[in-house]
Design a protein around this nucleic acid. Structure first.
Length: 596
RNA sequence: GGUCUCAUAGCUCAGCUGGAUAGAGCAACAGCCUUCUAAGCUGUGGGUCGAAGGUUCGAAUCCUUCUGAGAUCACCA
């Protein structure tokens, strides 16, 4: 890496010129801004303390040293405290030859040997269909897993399905009462949507009952607890915990419907898992951990038999871990599944892709594990992503403002179809080819729209404005790829990726140099994205790359270039760019078409 | 009320551990298809980086205070 070589040489120069030692990671080597001549810029302000000279003089002295020591440097110039260094063009051409044909360029293939990283994402409830918030979660989890793999990590993707609890009992009860045996087959509804329908129905009737009770003079809080429906639902949950055959059978039937529905949505989103956990199978695990904590005296039991962790010393409150009736809460379950996961896979890290509304939960989770003496507590990393909001604020299922995942995907694909047909792009496509293209573009637009935003930040989605296909979008990037493929197809006679080109014939134009420069940065982009778990880094990079290529494409002729060596170079440069575009978007879970 | 996050162009967002004159896209306006795919390219306008202090050679970035928005603090998950 050029930056590393430069940084180390700069340290040497400080040592040699001023007899001072500087650590190489304190040296700031950055890309030279376009308005100046050079490839890399060293900021010399920090070294003026060592040199006791002005920034300009210091920069010149370091520049002289570097130039004398490193033959790869062609020239340097100094502007204020900035030392701009220009490499010989051959360095960039060499970089090009070394990497242009690598289908794994920028990624680390040495995976599999290290301790695994577990990435948990999706983690749906089985009482309603997935919505836009889940889409962000799924796309993030899937992409982060890809990015970690590209960084040489052994990644295990897991899903923890929240398949038990009062919420699913509500749907079950409503279906029992008013469903009249309705099934996905009889209704034509997708299983998860069918269940969601009864969850909403439950809530509707429940609210009516509450209102009725309130009108008889009962307080709202009491009404919420006394309403017949909620009491019945709780009875059902109790029956479930006691393995009541009828309830279990109903539960299995309805969950199966939901899973059929989820599978369709997962498949359409293009996400998958290496392992699926079901909370119904793991929810009891936490209890033994809590018992252990009680024995050790790190947890305490109150008079009513409820068990608590006292976290006041760490600036938190007390946290309930077992209810007075001995049943476990969300936190208890998470303690159990965390330990199960750790014991099963001995991971170096356990990443949980969970919304930022649960920041407190994860702080407490780690703290309780620490209290319980689990020294691996720090392996837990909460990838806390921001909410997807509507222009008027948070999505609310009660107000019907939730953007349904399936609906949105349908809309994206049909918009892609309409737009593509208007442009006449698929006139010579077969129906199957065309449909595949619409799917790719629609999903590409959606995925890019979600993933280009910094995961930690809340983002806004306006349902009234459809997601764009022009500008900083997925289809723009897909289009650039397809455009390159088109050129390569036209150049069949001149293009052979294996052909050895003559480096001496190649003189880089500014746009070509900039393209190469961007391609060079890719491996660092992958590394940063992996370090901070941010697909947005990749998304913004690949947009930049596509934009740069389009400028090159418009400015410089490829197939009409009279010099055959240059023509071939540009074809290979185009192919290299297409390759990096493909690798990049694949990290985001986006596919690229050969034609569009 | 306690804790935590966020605030950058009309809108949606970049701006990596502090570095040169804060960038894109959309929207608006003006151009470019007898020439490799116009889902493209070029140009114009648009900013007190929420406000005020501070640290620094240097602050959108770090610290403090204030304003505004949001999250969270359940014997819910």
């Amino acid at each position: 890496m050029f930056e590393k070589i430069l940084a180390e040489k700069v340290c040497e120069s400080i040592n040699s010129l001023y007899q001072q030692t500087v650590s190489s990671d304190l040296v700031s080597v950055q890309k030279t801004r376009k308005e100046f001549i050079g490839d890399f810029t060293v900021v010399v302000f920090p070294f003026t303390k060592s040199s006791k000279k002005s920034p300009e003089i210091t920069a010149n002295e370091i520049g002289d040293f570097l130039k004398a020591e490193l033959p790869i440097i062609k020239s340097f110039n100094v502007i204020k405290g900035f030392l701009n260094i220009e490499f010989h063009e051959s360095e960039w051409v060499n970089f090009f030859f070394e990497n242009k044909n690598s289908i794994t360029y920028g990624t680390d293939e040495n995976s599999g040997n290290s301790k695994p990283i577990v990435v948990e994402y999706s983690s749906p409830n089985t009482n309603k269909p997935l919505h836009l918030g889940h889409i962000r979660n799924n796309l993030l989890g899937y992409s982060v897993a890809n990015i970690l793999k590209a960084n040489g990590q052994n990644v295990i993707k897991v899903n923890l399905v929240n398949d038990r609890g009062i919420h699913i009992c509500k749907s079950m009860l409503a279906w029992q009462k008013w469903g009249e045996g309705e099934s996905p087959e009889s209704s034509g509804l997708k299983g998860d949507h069918l269940i969601g329908k009864y969850y909403v129905l439950f809530d509707k009737h429940y609210k009516e009952q509450i209102a009725e009770l309130v009108s008889t003079g009962i307080s709202e809080d009491d009404a919420k607890k006394q309403a017949a429906l909620i009491v019945e639902a709780q009875e059902m949950l109790l029956k479930w915990e006691h393995h009541d055959e009828e309830v279990i059978a109903l539960w299995k039937k309805m969950n199966a419907w939901v899973y059929q529905g989820f599978d369709v949505t997962y498949k359409r989103m293009g996400v998958d898992f290496d392992k699926v956990y079901y909370e119904s199978e793991t929810y009891l695990l936490g209890k033994s951990l809590v018992e252990e904590g009680l024995q050790k005296g790190t947890l305490n039991k109150k008079e009513d038999n409820s068990v608590w962790a006292d976290l006041t010393a760490d600036g938190f409150d007390e946290k309930l871990l077992l209810r007075s009736d001995g049943t476990s809460v969300y936190m208890t379950q998470d303690l159990g599944t965390a330990e199960l996961r750790y014991d099963e896979m001995l991971p170096s890290k356990m990443i949980y892709v969970v919304g930022n509304e649960q920041n407190y939960h994860f702080d407490v989770l780690k703290l309780v594990l620490k209290k319980l003496g689990k020294d691996w507590f720090d392996a837990i990393q909460h990838l806390s992503y921001g909410m997807v909001e509507l222009p008027e604020g948070k999505m609310k299922s009660r107000e019907g403002t939730v953007v349904d995942a399936d609906d949105l995907i349908d809309e994206m694909i049909s918009t892609a179809k309409q737009t593509t047909e208007e442009l006449g792009k698929t006139n010579d496509f077969s129906q199957a080819e065309a449909d595949e293209l619409y799917r790719m573009i629609g999903l590409g637009a959606l995925k890019y729209f979600i993933l280009k935003v910094d995961p930690t930040k809340n983002m806004v989605f306006n349902p009234k404005e459809s997601i764009d296909f022009n500008g900083n979008t997925g289809p723009f990037i897909q289009y650039t790829y397809a455009r390159i493929q088109s050129v390569l197809r036209k150049a069949e006679a001149q293009y052979n990726s294996e052909e050895v080109l003559d480096a001496k014939e190649i003189a880089l134009l500014p746009k070509e140099k900039e393209l190469l420069r961007l391609l060079y940065e890719f491996s660092q982009v992958v590394k940063i994205a992996g370090d901070i778990l941010s697909p947005a880094i990749i998304a913004n990079y690949v947009f930049e790359l596509a934009k740069e290529y389009n400028q090159f494409y418009h400015e410089i002729p490829i197939l009409k270039e009279p010099n055959l060596a240059l023509l071939k170079f540009r074809l290979h440069l185009s192919a290299f760019t297409a390759n990096v575009i493909k690798i990049s978007v694949n990290l985001l879970g986006i596919e690229v078409p050969e034609r569009m």
